[in-house]
């Protein structure tokens, strides 16, 4: 299969996704691009997928832990990446290339998220800091057991300026969060904190920041120490049930649209703004627009009542 990427992202991928396997059989796949909140390039995703397959084939490995170096687990895909998708002189992405992009992420059974959701071994996620956008769709909502902290910030946080793009529609997200929570977070783009994630059923455990490593280790070791035959049997059952429940099967979703969205005359277009004033500038403009819109609505009611989510007010 063709390896997409630019010379730099291709060369660095091996250092940016690390693998180690402990003597007890705990494999740890670590994203290592902390200067960019572990934003994943195309080669990084490809490498992560390959490492998952490698761990599945390795009899030493009993359980796979996903983690990230630095302040956050992962902020999503690298949005500034030029990975050879544009023909010289063309301004827009072609449909076939957009399909390739979406296919790589979540379309088709050989794609990135399918590697995790169909993994024959149990998967544990060490989710600290941000787990946003593609990291939320492809990893955060695909791992079997998710460990968070109160300061975790989870969700399709780009939804407000790029559209929900699957945050509301994805079947696996609906079956994890329930339909109401999927809509609540997906249409508002609000941040899901670690406590929200526990309450809503996404997270298995929520522990203080300083207790994160101990809890992940404890969970992973228990899984690793169980008889491999029984673990294998239970995982087969889990994956079969997910197949019947349609949470790990492929589906068309909003990712395919995200490159073709057109801003109406009275709307701001995020990518246009980024070109003009960079990502930081675009985010600042969005914040200002939001403040104006909610101010116009005369809403003194910016403090929510009792709710499942604390991150509603303001941008993520």
């Amino acid at each position: 299969m063709k390896a997409y990427g630019n010379p730099e992202s291709l060369a660095r991928a091996e250092d940016q996704v690390l693998l180690e396997v402990s003597p007890e059989g705990v494999a740890r796949i670590t994203l290592n691009r902390p200067e960019k909140h572990n934003a994943m390039t195309v080669p990084m995703r490809r490498r992560l997928m390959a490492l998952v397959h490698q761990c599945e084939a390795d009899d030493r490995v009993r359980v796979i832990v996903f983690a990230g170096n630095g302040k956050s687990f992962c902020s999503g895909n690298e949005i500034n990446e030029d990975w050879g998708q544009r023909q010289p002189g063309t301004r827009r992405m072609s449909l076939s290339m957009a399909n390739r992009y979406a296919s790589d992420l979540n379309y088709g059974r050989q794609a990135f998220s399918q590697a995790i959701t169909r993994c024959s071994k149990p998967t544990v996620l060490r989710l600290h800091g941000y787990c946003a956008a593609a990291a939320y769709f492809m990893i955060g909502t695909r791992c079997d057991l998710v460990v968070v902290t109160p300061s975790s910030k989870i969700g399709a946080l780009e939804a407000r300026f790029l559209g929900p793009a699957g945050a509301v529609s994805a079947t696996h997200i609906n079956r994890i969060l329930g339909t109401k929570a999927a809509r609540r977070y997906g249409y508002s783009g609000a941040v899901m904190t670690g406590e929200d994630a526990l309450r809503v059923g996404l997270a298995h455990r929520c522990v203080p920041d300083e207790g994160m490593d101990a809890e992940v280790s404890r969970l992973a070791l228990r899984l690793a120490r169980r008889s491999p035959a029984m673990t294998h049997y239970l995982m087969k059952r889990v994956r079969a049930a997910e197949s019947l429940f349609e949470t790990n099967v492929r589906e068309v979703n909003g990712m395919l649209f995200s490159h073709f969205l057109q801003a109406a005359p009275d709307e701001a277009h995020f990518w246009t703004q980024v070109k003009a004033s960079g990502v930081a500038g675009a985010l600042a403009a969005d914040k200002e627009r939001l403040a104006k819109a909610t101010g116009d609505a005369g809403a003194a009611g910016s403090a929510p009542g009792r709710a499942h989510m604390q991150g509603m007010v303001g941008s993520p």
């Binding site: 407000r160 300026f161 559209g163 509301v168 508002s188 609505a297 009611g301």
Partner: peptide, 29 residues
């Protein structure tokens, strides 16, 4: 009333194309 207005305003910030796109895919799911 104020909270409804606030949440509605929040959601109106999303592009029309984005709402429509997600909605159609929701119908599929």
């Amino acid at each position: 009333e104020a909270r409804v207005a606030h949440l509605a305003a929040f959601c109106t910030q999303v592009m029309r194309d984005a709402i429509a796109a997600e909605k159609r895919v929701v119908f599929a799911s």
